[in-house]
Amino acid sequence: MKNAVIILSGGMDSTVCMAYAGSREYNLYPITFNYGQRHAYEVGQAKKIASYFQSNRHLVVDLAFFREIGGSALTSEAIELPLNRTEKEIGSGIPITYVPFRNGVFLSLAVAYAEAVKAQAIFIGVNALDYSGYPDCRPEFIEAYQTVIDAGTKQASEDKQKLQIITPLLYKTKAEIVKMGMDLAAPLQLTTSCYRGEELACGRCDSCLLRLKGFSEAGFIDPISYESY
């Protein structure tokens, strides 16, 4: 069987990626980042999800760096989270929840992990449709990073073994992601999306609103609990 590293946040998208990788008969090596995010509740959920899949070693990496540099509403409580925004507002510009080059840092560590376990793939749940305007979720970013991997890893340059970034959700709407998760029997009941980071989701932050929109359009009831809709 092939090996795959999955960047597992504890959210819905990364969990669907995990289920997808498992359905393709990869050995699963999840990696989760505790980067000082306000919604660190997701790290605990990621551990539950990794256990659910009976995955191989689940690596949890502490990155206090992001909280120290600030610059994002997700890592600094001094910046208010955006609430009750419209779909148009969410998709306009780069929001204050953008964490500086987060996916670039995550992918760098995931590549190192992948080489160590001789993985053939790295799965990441980036999305270019129902997304919050983050530049490190765009197709051109993934394509550029693949070039970096091809040029900068022993696995690619000497061993001649491809290490591929796989983005199964890149061009899917949130409703399509929900449907995909249901078809794959992904444990969506264990996932969390709320930026507030509590067991009861707020239902008002950008992430909650996009998730609720996806479940509504897909025709399913979200299995997690909300404070309000």
Rank of each mutant, 00 (worst) to 15 (best):
M18Y: 11
V105R: 00
F66D: 09
L184E: 05
A185K: 15
E227Q: 11
T32I: 02
Y98P: 09
A46E: 01
F33Q: 01
A19E: 15
I79D: 11
A218R: 09
T192W: 09
E176D: 11
E198L: 10
A73S: 13
T86W: 00
Q155K: 10
I224N: 04
M12Y: 15
F33W: 02
F66G: 07
Y145V: 08
S72V: 14
S228E: 07
G10H: 06
G133M: 06
L210W: 01
P223D: 02
Y134W: 12
I90M: 11
F33N: 01
S14W: 10
K48F: 06
S23T: 00
A19Q: 15
K172Q: 15
T153L: 06
A19P: 14
T173H: 11
L63E: 06
S51Q: 08
S157M: 10
E227S: 13
F66R: 14
A144H: 12
E158C: 04
T173G: 03
N34M: 06
S157D: 04
R57E: 15
F65M: 15
I79Y: 09
S193E: 14
L107T: 04
I31C: 07
D183S: 03
P30D: 06
A64E: 13
M1N: 00
S76I: 10
F123T: 03
D136A: 08
V178L: 06
Y35C: 05
Y171F: 14
S225N: 06
Y195F: 15
R24G: 00
A110R: 13
P82S: 07
E42Q: 00
N27S: 14
N3P: 05
D183N: 05
D13V: 05
V117C: 10
E198R: 12
A114Q: 14
M180S: 08
E77T: 13
D222V: 02
E140M: 06
K172C: 12
A50P: 05
A112D: 09
D130H: 08
E115S: 11
R204S: 09
T192M: 10
I224C: 01
F220E: 14
I31E: 04
A46P: 12
I166P: 00
K48H: 02
K47C: 03
Y26Q: 01
M180R: 07
T15K: 06
N103P: 03
L59E: 01
Y113D: 08
G219K: 08
Y35I: 07
V148F: 14
K88P: 05
A114P: 08
P139H: 05
H58M: 11
E198H: 04
Y171Q: 09
T192K: 14
M12G: 09
D222W: 02
N103I: 00
Y131K: 00
A151L: 06
I166W: 01
T32P: 00
R204Y: 04
R102A: 00
F141N: 09
Q155T: 10
T86L: 02
S228T: 05
L210C: 01
V60R: 08
R211Q: 12
T86P: 01
V61W: 10
G11I: 15
K47E: 11
G11W: 14
T173P: 14
V111L: 03
A201C: 08
E42V: 05
N3E: 04
Q189D: 11
I177S: 00
L74E: 14
G197F: 12
K172A: 06
H58A: 11
V43D: 02
S23P: 02
I166L: 13
T192P: 04
